[in-house]
Design a protein around this nucleic acid. Structure first.
Lengths: 236, 236
DNA sequence: AACTCAAACTTGTACGTACAAGTAAAAATA
DNA sequence: TATTTTTACTTGTACGTACAAGTTTGAGTT
């Protein structure tokens, strides 16, 4: 039998446990010492495993206390509407304009759709994000139906698409590519966002890659940024 | 005398050497073994130092070969115009509309200007980025004049503001905060970008923090995204 | 009851050793 | 000369040990 490096054993055990919710956000992992004896490795090896989990944003270490499961690095360099999620006290809600269903690959996807994706069926869903009941962002998502069995019938975990992928299918986002444009709102977008036709809207095209090589997610976002700009932060 | 951890000695020596250009991009650092004997530390310590430099994006390791100085992580989660720098074969140039000079703190800065900055004098400069001689992005920058002695007389290194900060003042960007809006182009912006008034333009407000606690940089960018969308990438 | 302090935990740094695995150039072979 | 093999270098993994430094808890003291 061929095994890779030992530290991957520890790392993957912890990573999968976190992804499956066996360790929840805020929980402390077993101490380094305990992991050592559980896997019969030295602390060097255990610490290497933990280091990688820190690098990937799963945990943080607190000297004297332990290793705590972190809210997963949501950013990924992604843009988020200022006021979504982090904003406390704001009334944010999400409306499904189109529930997940088998649909067609549309022209409006900016990034070129891969051939293997085009050959497969396509899951589509469309959501409207509102702040204080005012529509702020329209989100359209396309993804191949090959892997996600029964996805159209599933309820979203915490209203979150990514949480659903993570917890129900053990799929996580590993990368993203974005293009951002300022455009005139066409009739449809203007109507949905309750703005005038030809108002400037922020158009964000996103391509997500995941740990499942076959699963690429295509998203097109349209934002009314007059009241809620889109933003991100990065600190070393 | 009080020293911190030993690995910081090695790390900082290498980091400063890289920042000062003693090791250039593509160069290989001294081998771990050599660093060990030079600093009288064990490989554990040296590797810890190198690990941190990897994390901060300064170097990459190649098994069997060595540690090579990398092109510094430009991204920082930042948006870049698609076609700038990375795009080969494209004709990109930069025009100073306003050379670095002592100016005033303007109202148009979106992020609130810190009090200590407002009390100081302000360096301002304004550049127009063109692709194929067509104006694509207008960039306005403000920063307090306290630290950067003689900045207004300096020539930019490689036409790059950040390279100049790094090589001439040993200042590096440690974080950023951005807000993005789609707006109507006002008269002035429209004229500079050679577009019609009230065309949609992408307005990006950036606040950079640096390793010099006193130095914050405020930028306002205006992009015509019809031909060149703005974008970023992230991969784990 | 309130406080102090020691003990028992946690992670952080650092030592030293050994061998595996990848790379490149020199040496041996055909 | 051209090819193969060896050798000497690089980084990667893993062992074991020791003590420093931060946190929590509970025993002991006031």
């Amino acid at each position: 039998m061929k095994f890779g490096p030992k530290y991957l054993l520890v790392k993957n055990f912890l990573k999968e446990s976190i992804q499956q919710g066996k360790f929840k956000v805020g929980d402390f992992l077993p101490s380094e010492h305990e992991l050592c004896s559980r896997f019969s490795v030295t602390r060097t090896t255990t610490r290497k495993a933990l280091d990688e989990l820190i690098k990937e944003g799963y945990i943080e270490k607190l000297q004297g206390k332990g290793s705590r499961v972190k809210e997963r690095r949501k950013s990924l360099g992604l843009l988020t509407v200022k006021g979504f999620s982090e904003a406390v006290g704001k009334n944010v809600n999400t409306i499904f304009l189109t529930k997940p269903q088998i649909g067609e690959w549309k022209e409006e996807i900016i990034f070129p759709v891969k051939k293997e994706d085009k050959d497969a069926q396509c899951i589509f869903f469309e959501r409207l994000r509102c702040v204080n009941s005012l529509p702020v962002m329209l989100e359209r998502n396309w993804l191949p139906a090959t892997i996600l069995q029964g996805f159209t019938e599933k309820q979203f975990v915490d209203e979150s698409f990514f949480k659903t992928l993570s917890q129900e299918y053990l799929i996580e986002i590993t990368g993203s590519k974005q293009e951002i444009r300022a455009e005139y709102a066409d009739d449809k977008i203007a109507e949905i966002l309750s703005i005038e036709r030809n108002s400037p809207v922020l158009h964000i095209s996103v391509l997500f890659s995941t740990n499942q090589k076959k699963l690429t997610i295509y998203s097109e976002l349209f934002c009314n940024t007059t009241d809620f700009p889109v933003g991100n932060q990065y600190f070393m």
